[in-house]
Computed example of a mutant assay.
Amino acid sequence: MLQRAVLLLGDPDWIAKLLGAAYLLIPMVAAWALITEVLFGARTEAMAKVLESEGGLPVDNLPRTPGGRIVRAAADAEFGKYKAEAEAAPGDWRSWFRLSCAYDAAGDRKRARKAMRDAIALFRTRG
């Protein structure tokens, strides 16, 4: 890609120059995305290990469908407990981690990742 990018950047046509710049930019964006996802996973795993050693991981005892998915109504019923815990202790990464798990069980992946990012930020700044 680097060779093609240099060739296209050297071309007098502005469209070729744009393609050359894209050839340089796309691998950088992909590398950034890969690194952020790997770091997200590593930090999540580190927090899970701490919670496991403390006995604070949420218990996975929700009923499942024959296909293995968590029954949504059961996850929604359990969700309130974790939401109240996070509201009561907004500065505790553990409560945000458990809330993230509850969001995930309820099928809300976007909020689950947001809650986990909040947990990671709190985990990294703890004293």
Rank of each mutant, 00 (worst) to 15 (best):
K49P: 02
A115I: 05
R69S: 12
A88K: 08
A115K: 00
L18C: 14
P58C: 04
A88L: 10
M28E: 02
F123A: 01
Y103K: 05
R126F: 05
A77T: 14
G80T: 02
E85F: 11
E37L: 09
K49L: 14
K110H: 14
A73W: 15
A30Y: 13
G20P: 01
A119Y: 01
K83E: 07
E52R: 15
G67M: 15
V38H: 03
G67Q: 15
K81H: 13
L34W: 11
A33S: 14
L8G: 03
R69N: 14
E87K: 12
G41I: 01
R109C: 04
A102P: 06
I70G: 05
I26L: 14
A75G: 08
E45C: 11
D108A: 04
D11G: 07
Y82N: 05
K17V: 04
K110M: 12
W32Q: 05
E45N: 15
A105H: 09
K81R: 14
K17P: 01
R98P: 09
T36F: 07
G67T: 15
P66L: 07
M116P: 00
G127D: 05
A115R: 01
K81F: 08
L19N: 02
A16Q: 11
Y103F: 12
G10A: 07
A75T: 09
L25D: 00
M28N: 08
